[in-house]
Nucleic acid binder design. Sequence first.
DNA 1: TATAATGTCTATCGTTTTAGTAGGAATTTC
DNA 2: GAAATTCCTACTAAAACGATAGACATTATA
Lengths: 136, 136
Amino acid sequence: MLSKKTKYGLKALTYLASVGTKEPVQIAEIAKHENISQKFLESILLTLRRNGFLGSKKGKGGGYYLIKEPHEIPMTAVMRVLEGPIAMVPCVSLNFYEKCDDCPDEVECSVHKLMLQVRDSALEVYRNNTLADLIS
Amino acid sequence: MLSKKTKYGLKALTYLASVGTKEPVQIAEIAKHENISQKFLESILLTLRRNGFLGSKKGKGGGYYLIKEPHEIPMTAVMRVLEGPIAMVPCVSLNFYEKCDDCPDEVECSVHKLMLQVRDSALEVYRNNTLADLIS
DNA sequence: TATAATGTCTATCGTTTTAGTAGGAATTTC
DNA sequence: GAAATTCCTACTAAAACGATAGACATTATA
């Protein structure tokens, strides 16, 4: 399952992209427009800022804004920050590789074999989509 | 993340397929060979039996065995039984569809748009793989 | 027919993750 | 200086996960 965090984060990014301006948009406005708990959204926007997707401005007239152009923001990056590894098992992860304790031989492992294909197919989708592709 | 349940279930199925015979294989043997907690594996094999993948025999000389040929067992079916929906959000699920509370319009929704593609790509992988394709 | 070997079933449990909530500190504008 | 905003830390309730325990049912075979 996709976490709410990722879902809300994507929606917030999309909203900011659709607004189009570089003017800061308030958390409250995003939360209201996307039906998200404002406090929860705060923490999500914070991690998006810390990871270089958003800029922010404090005080009156403050808010969040996109740092890059929507077409420069690939879904691979967004998903990795919000949802974590794209692979469903660490032993097929490109960025978060870990060997399985139980599995003596990855080459022979059926789970490895299947999940490698799943990772590749998901990766292709995420690579083919930037934030710009998601606004309608 | 793939659950341990799915991982172990897949490994067990693969092991049964690789053994090849229609003779019952004991839980203990599978558990040992695949480094799985036996008690946990018991419950997994039970759900696989209840869902028509495995047959079982009780008592001495008992165990589990595949009911169908490996090439007749598509990964779509296995994944749905062990892991649940293939879609990452209910609003793009074929078999477990549910509307999102928060989302007023699926057609406009960026999450929907992206996750539809992810579902389709995963589905293609699972449809192209039967249990027979996973044994090496 | 007794016994040992197996699967079946229900209940429970500790840990981790999820999805928030609370409350205040820091910063900026007016 | 007051109001509006983001920033940050800590906490929490509920669910999911990954088992574990123990009794029961069935079967083979000695």
